[in-house]
Every structure is written in C-alpha cells, then in structure tokens.
Nucleic acid binder design. Structure first.
Lengths: 340, 340
DNA sequence: TTGAAAGCGCTACCAA
DNA sequence: TTGGTAGCGCTTTCAA
C-alpha cells in the first residue's frame, strides 16, 4: 500500500538505482527517463522512506530541541522561530520539554541521540555537564540556547544577559530612580548575567549596590515566578531603605511585584518604578502596563535554526559559534516617570 | 566512535542476536549473559540506532504534531501536555507549525508521513481534506485536535465548543445581560460550535438573537485578534441596540473589546460585561481581569497523547474515537455584576 | 538458551 | 547514462 522505490522501478522496467537518482536530482539521468519517473512518483504520491535513507547516509535531517517548558512564552517563541527557519530545508524538529527537571533533560538528550538527530539544541536546566560531554563523545553537534555554562566551550545562541541588566537598570536610573533593587533569578547564566549588568550600571552611575536590595526569586513550586515576585517584593518594601525602582528577572516576577506594591498602597511608577524582562504578550493590557526588556526570542530561534543547519553533517568539529542577540527596552507605564 | 550492537557482541564473544534480545528484554536469555551484556552497555553508554530498528519493525515510536502556531498559548499548552504524556513510553514528538497556512500544513503532513511517524496529530487550518485522505490511503492513523471537519469521520480530541458558547452566554445572562453580542471567529468548527452554543443559550432563555449582534472577527494580518476585537467592538457600540454583554471568540479579541469599551467611556462590567475564551495566562492582572471559558488545553493534550499511543501500530483501522473535553467558566471582574 | 541467515528501503561505489 | 552489488544497524525467523 505504501509505495517503494522498487515498485516504481519494476513498473517502469528500470533499476532502483535509476529511480533513486531521479529522486535526489542526480544529474546523469536521461531527460526522458527522468520525466517518466517523476510523473509516476507524482501519480503514486510517492514519499521516500526517510528512515531507510538515514541508515545509509548516517544523517537524518532532523534536529532535536529540548526546552524546560513550552508554557513559558519565551521558549514557545524560540521553538516556533526554529521551526519556521528550518522549514524548506527538509529538516524536521523533535521538541521535548524537560519540565525543568535535570534528570528528565538528560534522558531526553540520550533519547534524541538514539534518534540520530543531526544537531541537538538545548535550553538546559542542568547543573552538570554530563549530557554535553556525551554529545561531544558521540561527535554530535549541539547548540546551547538561552543558558550557557561556565567552562563549556560550546555553540551558544542567546540574548546578551549582561546587556539586559545594564539596559534595564540604566533605564530606571534615567527615570530618576536612585535606590534600585533587583529581584534576581536562580544560579544560571541568565540570572548571573543580568545581575552583573545591573551592578555595572549602578557602578557606572556612581550608585551603591545595596546587598539588601538584591533578593532572590524562590523557585519552589512557583512555575512562573508570580507568587515569589509578590513575596520578595513585600520584603523589599519592608526594608530600611525602601527601593524606588525594581528590576525583575522576568515578567511574571514583575507582575507579582506590581501587585505587592499596589497592595501596599504605593503608586507605580511614582513611588516605585518597575521593569521586567521577557516582554510577555499582552503586557500592555495589564493594570499597570509593564515596561520590560525584550529578549528577541525570534532572532534567537532564527539564529539557532540556521546555525543548526550549518552544523548538521559537519564531520569535523569546528570552532564553536557564540551568537549574542541584542536586547531591547520596551518602555511602558510601569517605569515611565518623565514623559517627554 | 558510536557503539553498535555488533561491537558489544564481538567484545563479549557472543552473537548480535543475543545482544539484541537483551536490549529488548527478551525472556529466553541466561541470567549471566544478560548481566554481562547489560553491564557492558552501561559502560559504553550504548544507545541503539532507532532508525535502523524502524526500518525492520516498520514502526518508529515517533508522533508528529502540526499546529497553526506555537505562539498562541492554547497550542503551546496542548503540545506541552502531549509531550509530557508520551514521555516514558519511548516516543518522541515532531512538532511543526504551519503558520496558519493550509499549503504549508499539507506539506508538513507529507513530510511527517515520509518520516514514518506512527501517528499524526493535527490542529488543522485547512479547508480541504486532501491531506487526511492521503493519511487514510497510507493507513496512517491521525487525530484531529481542536478543529474537526464536517463529513470526515476521524479521531478527534477537543473541547466541546457548543458547550463553550452555551456556558459563556448563560453566564452573561445570569449576570443580568439581556442584549448579548457575539464576536465570532472564522468559518471553522470551533467558531461555528461556539456560535451555536450562544444561540441555543439565548433561545433557552427566551432572548432573541439579533443578527447585528453577531459580528465576525477579521483575520487578515491580525494574528491574535486583538485589533480586530477592538474594531468590531467599536461597531457594536455604535449599533442601534447597544449590547450589554459580549461573548468573544477568544481572549485576545476580548482584550480588544475591553479597550474599545473603556475608550468609549463605558464601564465594565456595569455597562457591558465581557467574557472571552481560552484563559490566557495572567488575565487576572489585566486592567479589567478577564472572565473567560477555559478550554482545558492540558486535558486535550493528555487525551490526544494517550490516544495516539493507543493508535500507534494498530494495523487495522478501528472505529474513530471522539473525545470532547468539558470547558469551564472562569469568572473574573469583566463579567461579575452580582457579587454574592 | 543461543545464533546463522535473511532482509527492512534506501544509497554509495564502481563497472558496464 | 544505467545498473549490479554491497551494506547501513537492527530485528525476525527458524534451526541448532
């Protein structure tokens, strides 16, 4: 019922090799033969068995993407962009989500290796680098997305997190904030980068970074950070030097921060200005439209997709590529104190 | 460098068949042999080449999912739920997005067929059923998600759209609305189902359905429906019988509707109550927290995933399964006129 | 309990 | 320009 090369060859009284060559657009085939074959393929709706092809060529024209979750829009956007980028190059994309669980992630990577995917793209939530060493060992190219690892010289595509922190903080400073707090994320490169940018911006403007103004978003059971954002903001508001600006690691944390501030009877941005990161959709419909730093997820996905295709099938390991995308500040009401 | 069955067999001085049997947990292998093989596999980090296995077995243990876009949270949630559901069953999921383009969708389906995926899951944006007939022809099981087709007796998993319309409209009626408008979606099953539920609810409560109160969301270039929602609501507000309640096809349209209503100096929900559909994340942080009908995307994904696994490898076509998930009204400020 | 042989559908290589 | 042969890594069948 499913047509094979051999069926077409038999029907037309020619060899499978000839049909195979036509299929792949091989040059040395007679025009007439080519036409006959192509027509029959079309009539029969022939689709080559790509699993069989893979076995011979050692390449599958598939990519594997592992993300912590698709529920967080950033990863959905990246996935969509990769998918769009590789379409038309004959590639297909396996997507699996690790639910932020390092062990599940390692297992997904092993599974994708078994699937012989040409390149693995991973937004990792691991602490250890075992999975990456496994890929190195098997000479499978891989690309880190969003989160990088210290001491691992790998392909990387992500936003320039230090610049994220720098831009967000500088913006608050420009708006007249002087006691700027930072609600930071967990111990991964994105959070440490943003923190560093925050500190540099304070320094550059002669502002002192107060230890009590850097507070960490708990992660336990709070998927997006909304609730934690609320809780830690409450603490910030109670501190001796109440901040007049807060840079939040991500938008959900900022949602929580805004709720906490309004609950306390303070005004945004007059008393406290708030800026988040991620540019979650519809943030301009919020009670207080949220200023944010856009991570340019589409650019990241596009760059990662095309890098993956470039890497696919390269036998020799080439020098890892690092692509840092430039973030962009989106100013809305939550931080706009001095309308021009 | 990549280990094969044969390598292990040679090392241990046994045959590939024996190793293969151990790999698959075949019963008739001696305990000692099994242990030796398993240990060596672990030491070498052996991963079977699944492409080779597929070629023999005719099954790939892969599923293909085609969605219009991952940018719309509903599809991201469904995809995530499918991914979670099939994990641990040894399945991997190809995800591709058609960007709402019927031709691209057809092409993606062909490609997935060539990949020999065991089952195809598709949230279709097609008008024609050619792709589905192709899958039938190749005896590939497929599952329609979210959108069904008239006259196509296929597996289907989705929310009960008629009940969505019924629940939303009934809720508005309970809140005292008497002139209820509906901003409907395009000519696909989801929109027609919700419209039908809307009309039935009006009927059941002795309310007349006014033609001018049913207005269609344009789709051109407005990805989510926000802008169209705004525009058509403006029209509704200008109509002779201004509605006192609006049921919107989806949440973004409702965002637009809310903006239009507030822009016109009217109050929500006092002058006009609004309810959407989809329960987009963070809708409780909006200027006016949005009431909505939750489509239970996780349930849909879970059901679709387990159905897919049940279908995989079934040679004979079995009677199509229809799974209708029950929607759930989420009441927030945009429609709550009579707090208890 | 173990293994030899055959073959899945395709492509690479080389000869005609 | 065409095609025979071999083989990709695995599983299936059946014999030992």
């Amino acid at each position: 019922m499913v047509i094979r090369l051999k069926d077409i060859a038999n029907e037309l009284g020619i060899s499978v090799v000839t049909v195979s060559k036509v299929l792949r657009g091989h040059p040395d085939i007679g025009a007439e033969t080519r036409q006959r074959v192509l027509q029959r393929m079309r009539e029969l709706n022939y689709q080559p068995n790509l699993a069989a092809r893979s076995l011979v060529t050692g390449r599958t024209s598939t990519l594997g993407l592992v993300v912590p979750t698709l529920l967080f829009p950033f990863f959905a956007y990246v996935a969509n962009a990769i998918s769009t980028e590789i379409r038309g190059h004959g590639y297909n994309l396996f997507i699996s989500s690790s639910n932020e669980d390092p062990d599940l992630e390692a297992q997904e990577i092993r599974q994708l290796l078994a699937r012989q995917v040409d390149v693995i793209l991973v937004a990792s939530s691991q602490k250890k680098t075992d999975s990456f060493l496994l890929m190195e060992e098997q000479h499978r190219p891989y690309i880190l997305i969003d989160r990088s690892f210290h001491g691992l010289d790998a392909n990387f595509v992500g936003v320039d997190d230090e610049m994220v922190g720098w831009l967000a903080t500088s913006h608050l400073i420009e708006q007249g904030c002087r006691r700027i707090a930072h609600i930071r994320g967990p111990e991964v490169s994105t959070a440490t980068g943003r923190l560093k940018g925050y500190e540099k911006a304070l320094d550059a403007h002669g502002l002192k970074s107060q230890p009590e103004h850097i507070i960490s978003l708990g992660t336990s059971g709070d998927h997006t950070g909304e609730r934690s954002g609320y809780d830690v903001t409450k603490k910030l508001l109670a501190s001796r030097h109440r901040p007049d600006g807060i840079f939040c690691f991500n938008d959900p944390a900022a949602f929580g921060a805004i709720r906490a501030i309004l609950d306390s009877g303070l005004r945004i941005p007059k008393d406290i200005a708030v800026i988040g990161c991620g540019n979650i959709a519809h943030s301009d419909f919020l009670r207080v439209p949220l200023s944010t730093v856009d991570q340019e997820s589409e650019s990241i996905g596009k760059a990662a997709g095309s890098l993956a295709i470039a890497l696919a099938g390269k036998k020799t390991k080439i020098k890892p590529t690092k692509k840092l995308v430039t973030p962009r500040v989106v100013v809305r009401a939550s931080s706009l104190r001095n309308p021009k």
